[in-house]
Amino acid sequence: MLSELAKRDTGTMTSKDERLLFLEQMKDVRRIRRPNRAQVSTPKELTPGHLERQRAAVDARSPDANPLTASDVDPLTAQDILSWQRPGVQHGVFRKLRLGQYPIEARLDLHRMTVEQARREVFGFVKDCVRYGLRSVIILHGKGERNPDGIAQIKSYLARWLPELDDVLAFHSAQKHHGGTGAVYVMVRKSDQQKQRNREIHGAR
């Protein structure tokens, strides 16, 4: 050991000498086989209190901004006609909508959807129509003729939902070639951008 240290002091140690010296000094050292860190594990069972707090946290992060009714509504049958217009909509405009004389710019098909799925789709669809400037659209809701009770469930909810949306100006059951009482024409209000463009166009004349 002294000879090795002497070599190191005089600067004459080779890399091999240094490695041998290191191994000699570390011969009594043993590796720690268990990791030197805390063991953290999640509880195997969550109490009802934990679950309730988790649900409350999720609800607080993602509130339901959808205003459409989720509870029971008045039932409609296959042959019931949907018809509604917001005050201020001109009769001539509503007549053209009822007769299917406006070009259909977009469609939403609610067939085979649950009520909750349809609720989300209708809300998002109308918002998208406003965003992209689509005025005359159609929603296919089905007639419910195969239901044992004869109730057209999605149609019944849709009749309640559409007037709840401020962006909907009017709606009416479609003409036969567009689905008849299994579909509905919907007139959507102009977006703020469209209104501004119209003001600029008419103001420039």
Rank of each mutant, 00 (worst) to 15 (best):
Q54A: 14
H141R: 09
R131Q: 15
P67G: 14
R146D: 13
D166T: 10
F94I: 00
S173F: 01
A159R: 08
N147F: 04
R61G: 02
D80T: 13
E145D: 07
I104D: 02
I81M: 08
P75M: 08
H111I: 07
F171W: 06
G144F: 03
P48S: 08
T114G: 12
G49F: 06
Q90W: 03
M113S: 08
D64V: 12
M113A: 05
P148S: 09
G49E: 15
A65T: 14
E121G: 00
M113H: 12
G144S: 10
D109Y: 06
Q79V: 09
K155F: 02
C129S: 10
H111P: 02
V58S: 09
L99T: 06
Q54M: 13
R119H: 15
C129L: 08
R98Q: 11
P163R: 07
E116T: 10
L165W: 12
K155A: 03
D166F: 11
A170L: 04
G92C: 04
F171I: 01
D72I: 08
P87V: 05
R53T: 06
S83C: 10
I81Q: 11
E164W: 09
L108M: 06
H111R: 12
K176T: 08
R53V: 12
K143N: 06
Q79H: 11
V130S: 02
D59A: 14
K176A: 11
V122Q: 03
S136P: 00
K176L: 13
A159C: 09
A60S: 14
V58W: 09
C129E: 05
V115L: 14
V73D: 12
D59K: 14
K127H: 15
C129R: 04
L108F: 07
E52Q: 10
H141G: 04
E121Y: 07
A65I: 14
R119M: 04
K143D: 06
A60L: 11
A106E: 13
I154V: 11
H50P: 03
T69M: 09
R86K: 15
L165T: 08
D80P: 05
I104V: 15
V115K: 09
P148R: 15
A106R: 13
K96E: 10
S173Y: 01
R95S: 13
D74F: 15
R98L: 04
P87N: 14
Q153A: 10
K143R: 14
H111A: 12
A56S: 13
K96N: 15
H177N: 06
E121I: 00
G179P: 02
S136E: 14
E145M: 11
T69F: 09
Y157K: 07
H172G: 00
Y102R: 01
L158F: 03
Y132H: 12
G124N: 13
D80L: 05
R95L: 08
R86C: 05
P163C: 10
R107V: 10
V89C: 05
Y102M: 01
I151N: 07
Q54S: 09
A152E: 07
E121P: 01
V115P: 01
T77P: 02
V168I: 11
P87W: 07
G133L: 12
D72A: 14
L97Y: 00
N66Y: 09
F171D: 00
Q54K: 05
Y132M: 05
D166V: 13
R119P: 03
G49Y: 10
I104G: 05
Q90I: 02
R131K: 15
L68M: 07
E164D: 12
